[in-house]
């Protein structure tokens, strides 16, 4: 089971108030996590990555095990700690503004 944390704005949109546990089939990467996330919460489609191109929205960041995976290829395998559920895959909005 993969633990995923959403930013506040997307928690309200998905009507959840805590981290999510997701079953992810096959290799665990940002892409496969997002596929599983959007399958379970279709209202999040388009909010984290583009509907068509699947490119990450510019102000979204992906953190795993204190590393930034935002700028790596989206199929990059994630660490064992994410795959085992020991650590949380964090989706968050980048700092912007004041």
């Amino acid at each position: 089971m993969i633990h995923v944390r959403l930013p506040y704005h997307l928690q309200t949109l998905a009507r959840i108030s805590a981290d999510i546990d997701l079953e992810v089939a096959g290799p665990v990467s940002p892409n496969t996590i997002l596929n599983a996330l959007e399958e379970r919460f279709p209202m999040l489609r388009g909010t984290i990555r583009d509907h068509i191109t699947k490119e990450r929205r510019p102000l979204i960041r992906f953190f795993a095990c204190a590393e930034d995976y935002s700028h790596l290829p989206p199929d990059t395998p994630l660490p064992e700690a994410i795959r085992s559920g020991a650590e949380t895959f964090i989706i968050l909005g980048a700092i912007a503004g004041g």
């Binding site: 919460f41 279709p42 209202m43 388009g46 909010t47 509907h51 068509i52």
Partner: peptide, 26 residues
């Protein structure tokens, strides 16, 4: 509510959440 649901599909996911394509402007 977010109104989007692809034609012919159930209005909610198996968990009861509303579906959404309503934000798809292409």
């Amino acid at each position: 509510e977010q109104p989007g649901t692809p034609p012919g599909e159930p209005l909610t996911t198996p968990e009861g959440f509303p579906k959404g394509e309503s934000n798809k402007f292409v």
